[in-house]
Lab assay of single mutants.
Amino acid sequence: KLPPGWEKRMFANGTVYYFNHITNASQFERPSG
């Protein structure tokens, strides 16, 4: 399970990334916590 605010998303080319809808942060590494 991801930390609060984070969700797993995917680009059109299939690349997975993680987006935080609270802070609008995005990253390729899975957030810890």
Rank of each mutant, 00 (worst) to 15 (best):
L2F: 03
Y17F: 09
P4S: 09
I22H: 10
A25Q: 15
T15P: 05
P4Q: 10
S26N: 07
G33H: 12
G5Q: 06
E29N: 07
A12D: 12
F19L: 05
I22V: 12
W6G: 00
Q27M: 08
G5H: 11
V16P: 09
F11M: 15
P4T: 09
F28V: 11
W6P: 00
N13I: 02
S26D: 04
G14Q: 04
T23K: 03
S32T: 14
R30N: 11
K8A: 10
A12N: 10
T23N: 07
I22T: 09
Q27D: 02
T15G: 08
G14N: 05
N13D: 15
E29R: 04
M10Y: 14
N24T: 07
G33F: 15
G33T: 13
A25E: 15
P31A: 01
M10A: 09
F19Y: 15
G5I: 04
K1M: 14
F11S: 15
P3E: 05
Y18L: 00
I22N: 10
S32M: 14
A25V: 15
N24M: 11
E29H: 08
E7R: 04
G33V: 14
S26W: 15
Y18M: 00
V16F: 11
T23P: 00
E7I: 09
G14F: 03
I22Y: 11
F19T: 04
T15E: 15
I22Q: 09
F19Q: 04
R30V: 14
F28E: 08
A12S: 11
F19H: 08
K1Q: 15
T15D: 14
T23Y: 05
R30K: 10
G5L: 02
W6F: 02
T23F: 05
R9F: 06
K1I: 14
M10H: 11
N24Y: 06
K1W: 13
G33E: 14
A25Y: 08
W6V: 01
F19I: 08
K1D: 15
Y18K: 00
F28T: 12
H21Y: 15
Y18G: 00
P4I: 10
S26F: 13
Q27A: 06
F19E: 06
W6L: 00
T15F: 08
F28G: 07
I22D: 10
N24F: 08
V16G: 04
R30S: 09
G33Y: 14
G14A: 03
G33W: 15
R30M: 12
K8L: 13
A12F: 06
Y17G: 05
T15K: 12
M10I: 13
P31W: 01
F28M: 12
R9E: 01
H21K: 12
I22F: 13
F11C: 15
